[in-house]
Simulated assay, not measured.
Amino acid sequence: MAYSPAAQPAPVSPPSVKVILTSADLQRVVDRIAHQILEKTQGAANTVLLGIPTRGVPLARRLAARISTFESVDVPVGVLDITLYRDDLRRNATRAVGPTEVPASGIDGKRVILVDDVLFSGRTVRAALDALSDLGRPSSVQLAVLVDRGHRELPIRADYVGKNIPTALAESVRVTLAETDGVDEVKLLGGGQL
Score class of each variant (00 low, 15 high):
Ala2Gly: 07
Ser4Tyr: 08
Ser4Arg: 15
Ala6Gly: 09
Ala6Trp: 15
Gln8Val: 01
Gln8Met: 12
Pro11Asp: 15
Val12Glu: 12
Pro14Met: 13
Val17Asp: 11
Lys18Leu: 10
Ile20Gly: 07
Gln27Trp: 06
Gln27Thr: 14
Arg28Gly: 12
Arg28Gln: 14
Val30Glu: 14
Asp31Pro: 05
Arg32Ser: 12
Gln36Glu: 15
Gln36Phe: 11
Glu39Pro: 10
Thr41Asp: 02
Ala45Glu: 12
Asn46Gly: 11
Val48Cys: 03
Leu49Gly: 01
Leu49Glu: 06
Leu49Met: 10
Leu50Tyr: 00
Leu50Trp: 01
Gly51Met: 07
Gly51Ala: 12
Ile52Lys: 09
Ala60Ile: 05
Ala64Ile: 05
Ile67Thr: 00
Thr69Asp: 14
Ser72Ile: 00
Val73Thr: 07
Val73Phe: 10
Asp74Asn: 09
Asp74His: 08
Asp74Arg: 09
Asp74Gly: 03
Pro76Lys: 08
Val77Thr: 11
Val79Phe: 03
Ile82Tyr: 02
Thr83Ala: 02
Thr83Met: 03
Leu84His: 10
Leu84Ile: 00
Asp87Ala: 13
Leu89Met: 14
Leu89His: 04
Arg91Gly: 04
Arg91Lys: 11
Thr94Val: 11
Thr94Gly: 04
Pro99Ala: 15
Pro103Val: 03
Ala104Gln: 15
Lys110Ile: 00
Arg111Phe: 02
Val112Thr: 08
Val112Pro: 13
Leu114Asn: 02
Asp117Val: 00
Asp117Ala: 10
Val118Gly: 10
Phe120Glu: 10
Ser121Lys: 01
Arg126Trp: 01
Ala128Arg: 00
Ala128Gly: 01
Gly136Arg: 01
Gly136Pro: 00
Ser140Val: 11
Ser140Lys: 14
Gln142Arg: 02
Val145Gly: 04
His151Cys: 11
Glu153Ala: 12
Leu154His: 09
Tyr160Asp: 10
Val161Asp: 11
Val161Pro: 13
Gly162His: 06
Lys163Cys: 10
Ala168Pro: 09
Ser172Phe: 13
Val173Gly: 09
Val175His: 01
Glu179Asp: 14
Glu179Leu: 06
Thr180Met: 12
Lys187Asp: 07
Lys187Arg: 15
Gly191Tyr: 00
